[in-house]
Design a protein around this nucleic acid. Structure first.
Lengths: 140, 140
DNA sequence: CTTTAATAGGTATTTACAATACGTATTAAC
DNA sequence: GTTAATACGTATTGTAAATACCTATTAAAG
């Protein structure tokens, strides 16, 4: 059971942005800070923007900011978005309807239920619950 | 969010064995039936035997049978066994304790909780719940 | 006791896909 | 108009899952 690093990084980017909600973060800055590929983080940011979690602004002084309060961003929703297209097992994916191995369907229903339980548990938390305690410049 | 085919196939093998609990299944037979690699299924069967879910017998007429009633084999336990060593996110794995990206730990706890919810949901079902309705030779 | 049918398990290879890199277009600030 | 940023398509790389192969071991059957 594994999440892609795409999702992993996406969550961390949101956490970082939540720590300073007023200002914009460029992907270059986040990539630098995390020691990761700027291009990769750009892709993730685009996805987060598509999902409505962040708003991006191009041009000088641009970057991304949270589209809503961290309190209103549920973790399950973020994971659902970033893991989109990831099939839990092969027969969940496109063209997996054939299911040559008999008995697939009883299993499928149980797996879907478990997946839903996973996401529901995440939905009990918001970004605010896992964000860094103190925004920068607010210490002592 | 994805399970390995190792786990997927392992569950199907158990389902098939549960459909005829009295007799032994050779990996060759299951591989033939599923159209999959015999060697791969052998590895999975070994793991299932290590986990105590099946008992294997070598030699002529050997093969594997369920070690317990299908009613006593919980799906969460099987998935836990077969997914052993799979880290949900990178920093869960070996050497992931460093976690260069700050704020990992708040996220970690939430992800672990969700993973537990996933497995707990599966534990609500047993192999008997998803096995094929009728064992062969028991029709009508 | 030899043959045959099966698991056990190590190692090597293949392959799929996530991760990354690159390049160009677009947009907006200054 | 120049610069700083995102947007996004495509190409490449790297890694790990999936598979294949080979040899040992075990036990049944003749």
């Amino acid at each position: 059971m594994r999440l892609t690093s795409f999702t992993d990084y996406g969550l961390r980017m949101l956490m970082r942005m939540a720590s300073a909600p007023d200002r914009a973060f460029s992907t270059a800055e986040l990539a630098e800070e995390f020691g990761l590929s700027r291009n990769h983080l750009s892709k993730i940011m685009q996805k987060l923007a598509q999902g409505g979690h962040v708003t991006t602004r191009r041009g000088g002084g641009g970057g991304a900011t949270l589209a809503r309060s961290a309190r209103d961003i549920r973790l399950g929703g973020v994971v659902r978005l970033l893991e989109e297209g990831q099939a839990l097992v092969e027969c969940f994916g496109p063209g997996g309807g054939d299911c040559s191995i008999s008995g697939c369907c009883g299993l499928k229903a149980r797996l879907r239920s478990a997946e839903a339980a996973f996401l529901a548990d995440l939905d009990r938390s918001t970004l605010a619950d896992i964000a860094l305690a103190q925004p920068e410049g607010a210490e002592a």
